[in-house]
Design a binder for these strands. Structure first.
Lengths: 193, 193
DNA sequence: CGCCCCATGTAAGACGTTACATGATTGA
DNA sequence: TCAATCATGTAACGTCTTACATGGGGCG
């Protein structure tokens, strides 16, 4: 049994963990999820998924069980181990750092997507609020940089910069909407109990 | 001199080409641009940039000239070759495919950012219109998928999906704004000439 | 002298891409 | 029988990350 804590797990690994938390699945099932749903940002190629599952198994985060019964070729169905659940939860509930925003928002949105089932609605809400604060800071920094440099840029460069600002502001708006959605739900539950 | 046409150039390579088109620069200069401006999505680590420059030079897309004169350690300043300019222009002006939208929009925005200086305002406008059409199709597909699956998702999953839709719609809005900006400029120039 | 900035580079390892290989079953 | 689908895997290759190495110059 290998240690799971020291080594870095890449984004694809967490995507797999999150899906396996919902239902146990084979590599082939997971590939189909990536290729058929809008999770196309993750690779559905066998050369990515099967080695990734092997690594997760080596680290003790998932466990595969061979399913010989059915008529077709043997299938190996993976499910999360306790360590896998813990690792997933740790990834999701960790506080949002400024660096998390520098290279795209996909990882954070993925964390949020899995948060409710894995760590509960309270954790989802906390994640959203943390993200909202981080985004406010980030948007302010972008505006500052824009003020300083927009006059020096060609039109296409300036517009490209604006596209990044708009995308960030759009996500910030979304956090407000998502927080409102969660607070409404919590309120309903609160009044019902 | 190696052939430049057959092999794939990664995103970092194009980012370097685009920056070097604007001004010749050393690896260190380029690293500073990546680390200090909002182009932080590209790696500023020496282990990424120096090998990338070597590869570009091997392919004949850039040429480095050593600058021994100044007091400090030797600097190697790179500039684009004719082939490098051609490759950059080819990358920027190629039509937008549906797959270009599946994994984030960063590459396309980068293409647009460099388009005006490299290929002219007409090319920028064409790129925007092509992007606008592709995004319309993509947004429609996302809506369709949402209709089909949103009832089955937990709240956080549904909201995460919505965040992706909003981001895409936001970029679509931006294309409209950017096109208007360019058409206004063209109009000005047109009436002035 | 020690430390930081300039400036370039390499080595080990991890990860993803592409392409290929294998093998069973179903259906035209 | 040929193709497609199910299902798993490997090998070669390219690239990125992390960490280390080097070496000159200025400054306290």
């Amino acid at each position: 049994m290998a240690r799971a804590d020291t080594k870095h797990v890449p984004a694809l690994g967490y995507a797999l963990l999150g899906l396996l938390y919902q239902n146990p699945a084979s590599g082939y099932d997971l590939r189909k999820i990536f290729s058929s749903t809008s999770m196309k940002s993750y690779s559905d190629s066998p050369g990515a998924i099967y080695p990734a599952l092997q690594r997760l198994e080596k680290r003790g985060l998932v466990k595969g069980t061979i399913e010989e019964s059915n008529g077709l070729r043997r299938r190996q169905v993976f499910h999360l181990t306790a360590r896998g659940t813990a690792e997933l939860r740790k990834w999701i509930t960790q506080p949002i750092a400024a660096e998390d925003l520098t290279r795209g928002f996909e990882d954070i949105v993925l964390r949020f997507a899995f948060s409710e089932q894995t760590a509960g609605a309270a954790a989802s809400l906390q994640l959203l609020k943390s993200l909202q604060e981080a985004l406010k800071v980030h948007v302010a920094a972008l505006h500052k940089e824009y003020q300083a440099s927009h006059k020096l840029m060609p039109t296409s460069g300036r517009l490209a910069f604006e596209s990044g600002m708009r995308a960030t502001e759009c996500l910030l708006d979304w956090t407000g909407y998502a927080i409102a959605t969660y607070e409404k739900e919590t309120h309903k539950k609160g009044s019902a109990s």
